[in-house]
């Protein structure tokens, strides 16, 4: 095996890292966060699988099905709110490139407000269902519906807290290696939640509506 054959001349070999190579903090951080998001993606994949198994006719046990209460346009409003939020975040990050603190904060604030709108619409929707007596205890199918959508909403909730924290950190600390790294990871998080929302919207709401 040639890989074993010594290719380096031991007399001239460089033995120590004298050129002092250092690890790039931001990329190490974003890689780790990317790995976390991978596991978050698996979490949603599993929830979707559970939803798939529990969305047969018999899963609703004769009770309400999504076809009876999903309002596609209402949920489309949520979709738009979340997408605009991601867009606003993107504008904010663009401002970061120009080292504009106010631009970044404005973008983040807009993203925050739009995220809140998404969440308020979701909560309103859920309490509406609750008032009709539709809860996650209604049937296996409804359990899957509620848990999948609300786990996503919980992610949005924590994302919103994080946006607030980041606004505060940028205001107090400015653009340091730490805050910029976190802004990047938060962007990854926010984008992933939007992408997952696409799946939720299509496979849970729309599919549920037509079937």
């Amino acid at each position: 095996m040639s890989a074993h054959a010594s290719t380096v001349d031991p007399k001239k070999a460089e033995l120590w890292d004298i050129h002092h190579h250092s690890h790039d903090v931001i990329s190490t951080r974003t890689l780790g966060y990317f790995l976390y998001l991978l596991s978050d993606g698996m979490l949603f994949a599993t929830l979707f699988a559970a939803y798939g198994v529990l969305s047969y006719q018999h899963s609703y046990f004769g009770g309400p099905t999504p076809a009876e209460f999903v309002k596609p346009w209402y949920t489309f409003g949520q979709t738009i709110a979340l997408f605009l939020s991601v867009l606003a975040y993107g504008f904010g990050m663009n401002a970061l490139k120009h080292k504009s603190k106010s631009g970044l904060i404005n973008g983040m604030l807009a993203a925050f407000v739009l995220g809140v709108i998404f969440l308020v619409l979701d909560i309103h929707d859920m309490s509406h269902l609750y008032s009709m007596g539709i809860t996650l205890a209604s049937s296996g199918g409804m359990s899957a519906f509620m848990v999948l959508t609300q786990v996503h909403a919980t992610h949005i909730f924590f994302g919103l807290i994080w946006i607030l924290v980041m606004i505060a950190q940028v205001m107090t600390k400015g653009f340091t290696e730490e805050t910029v790294g976190r802004l990047l990871t938060l962007r990854m998080f926010w984008h992933l939640q939007a992408v997952i929302w696409v799946f939720v919207y299509i496979f849970v709401y729309l599919w549920g509506y037509i079937s």
Binding site: Y60, F61, S139, G140, G141, S143, A144, V147
Partner: peptide, 9 residues
């Protein structure tokens, strides 16, 4: 919830 119950879907 009724993910794994016997009955109720």
């Amino acid at each position: 919830a009724h993910f794994f119950t016997a009955g109720m879907g």
